[in-house]
Amino acid sequence: MNDSRILEISDLKTYYYTSRGIVRAVDGITLDLKKGESLAIVGESGSGKSTLAFSIMRLLPDNARIVDGSIWLYPEKIDLVRLSNDEMRKVRGRRIGMVFQDPMTFLNPVMKVGDQIAEAIMYHHGCTQKVARKRAVELLERLRIPDASNVALRYPHQLSGGMKQRVIIAIAISCNPEILIADEPTTALDVTVQAEVLELLRGFIHELGMSLILVTHDLGIVAEICDKVAIMYAGKIVEIAETYSLYKSPKHPYTIGLLKAVPTVHKSSSEVGGIKGNPPDLVNPPAGCRFNPRCPYVFEKCLGEEPPLIRVNNDRAVACWLMM
């Protein structure tokens, strides 16, 4: 079982140093990802899920730092946290690709899209620009872009949002990385385009045997492509489980609330529940369980002591005193 592991995150802590104080955006996360597995990281904005994704890529802003923990990349078991910048550069793009949120702002406006795709190929495979450009066109074709050789010569502003997102995907997978991290890949897209892009992503990860880490707040898209879901709240994982069983029987009160907040055809909008209150301030998180101010089942223990993430059965771990 452990042989098929490709990424292992252990007790990772990433903090932002701001004028207000230290923001503990990722505060002790432990996770692992198997080969070919798709893992969703779900949470509200401010839960630290994007920070976790950018920590893996080591693409954090200047005021953020990984203060503790390890990110092991298999099979060599190298710790990404401790790699030099140069070594990390060789991991980025080649072994871990990243799909970003907003196709409008994540492409360089003054560079032809074909060249933006070719760049990574040139550097990681050491091939000529001509070869890399040809490969870029092939990638666009595989992403079902009509007239790909022509599109490769266009600038981002000449393409639609969906096309641009495909270019971003093409950049991320251009060097056949083993792991793909997608940070809200469809949030900025029209609903009709969302489905298409998701379908493409799913097709690619299966075809190329990639592992996927999908960061999202949208539980709807999670069900479509992910095997496993980790729910994040205030910098911590509160529940992690197989997708099907998580949807079927959520255990953590936060997960329950989150699932209730998803409208379905069977519920009228008045029946859609939300979770009262707001996510806590991560400069000064509440003592004990961080969800306690919003939790409907709160009792004394929750206020004093922080619940650890405990495996409750084969495919599930929960951090809640109710489960103990």
Partner: peptide, 22 residues
Amino acid sequence: TQDYILTARAKGIPESRVVFRH
């Protein structure tokens, strides 16, 4: 500080290219 710089860095190209080219 622009987003496309993150895309460029995520490709794993040298920082000098990120700075001068992008």
